[in-house]
């Protein structure tokens, strides 16, 4: 009897002790002990503050200036005589600045419609690694005005909620319910966008902004939903965004409400955004 007992004990020890040893090796610490995993804010959800045209879940950091130079060429459907759109270009030159953590201001001037736009973007919630805050949540409020008096020079206001999540190291998504008001009436739209990392410094991005409601009338016909696909390429302090889009304009009222190109009839165009960040104020000031 006792020999069987011993044998069982022996087998138990033989089976369990390596497991015990390896468990000890995993934790490693004998002095510090094992602590629960620390929680941190989830960063790098997108490479820059725009998915393509749409405001993304990223926000310019406090004390940082992000200068944006955006180009959209003419529609590819213009054909070889116009170098498939490369002969025409529309430009937006803008800048964003992080005033304090979680709040940034932006301003821009577009050649299309001679439009000036400005806005404030505020982060309500920042996704955390322990999922105590599963989403990032931001609001954007902007105003834009065109200098072309024939088209009416009233302000158009944008109110946008941006919600989404970095699901994995590679994949992030967001939705952006949007309301434009002013000019000829109200426009309700829902932006959706995502990014998928291809390499550590390159991502594939896509966004679609279906409009659910727009005012009636002659001035509001012939518009399509904005759809854009492209690549973000990050090189140090620059992010290059290269894309195809059916939107010629880069200010919210233009690409959300007044996209006049159709993907079906080669109304899409090549475009790029260049983003360059400058640290203006040492981040220690905000810590």
């Amino acid at each position: 009897m006792s020999s069987i007992k011993l044998r069982i004990l022996f087998i138990f020890t033989a089976v369990l002790s390596p497991a015990f040893l390896s468990a000890q090796q995993d934790s490693g610490f004998s002095l510090l002990g094992d602590e629960p995993a620390e929680s941190s804010k989830v960063e790098n959800t997108f490479k820059t503050t725009r998915v393509i045209n749409l405001q993304s879940l990223e926000l310019t950091d406090a004390g940082v200036m992000d200068v944006k130079i955006n180009h959209r060429f003419g529609a590819v459907g213009l054909g070889s005589y116009e170098a498939f759109g490369l002969d025409n270009a529309s430009v937006r030159i803008g800048a964003e600045y992080g005033i304090v953590p979680n709040l940034a201001v932006n301003i821009g001037r577009s050649s299309l419609g001679r439009m000036v736009d400005a806005g404030l973007k505020y982060r309500l919630m920042h996704q955390t690694s322990d999922n105590a805050r599963p989403l990032s949540l931001l609001i954007y409020g902007g105003a834009a005005r065109t200098a072309l008096t024939m088209m009416g020079s009233e302000f158009v206001y944008t109110a946008q909620l941006i919600a989404g999540r970095k699901e994995t190291d590679r994949f992030s998504w967001q939705i952006a319910p949007s309301l434009l008001s002013g000019g000829t009436g109200q426009v309700i739209a829902m932006g959706v966008g995502f990014r998928e990392k291809i390499t550590p410094r390159t991502t594939f991005n896509a966004e679609y902004i279906p409009v659910f409601s727009r005012p009636e009338g002659r001035g509001n016909t012939g518009f399509y939903n904005s759809f854009s696909v492209g690549l973000d390429v990050e090189t140090g302090g620059h992010v290059f965004q290269l894309h195809f889009t059916n939107s010629a304009g880069m200010a919210e009222p233009q690409f959300i409400a007044q996209t006049n190109g159709s993907w079906m009839s080669r109304g899409f165009r090549f475009g790029f955004n260049i983003s360059r960040v400058f640290t203006v104020v040492n981040p220690d000031k905000f810590r």
């Binding site: 490693g28 610490f29 004998s30 002095l31 510090l32 602590e35 620390e38 941190s40 960063e43 790098n44 950091d61 406090a62 004390g63 940082v64 690694s129 190291d169 550590p200 410094r201 140090g236 302090g237 960040v277 640290t279 040492n282 981040p283 220690d284 810590r287």
Partner: peptide, 29 residues
């Protein structure tokens, strides 16, 4: 024994800190 949370390294430039976390140290992993 020493233990360091890599995300807690603070830089003089916010973008550098993000690149350090994302591209070099891969702190998610």
């Amino acid at each position: 024994e020493f233990a360091v949370s890599v995300n807690s390294f603070l830089f003089k430039k916010a973008l550098m800190q993000k690149h350090f976390q994302e591209n070099y140290m891969e702190t998610i992993k």
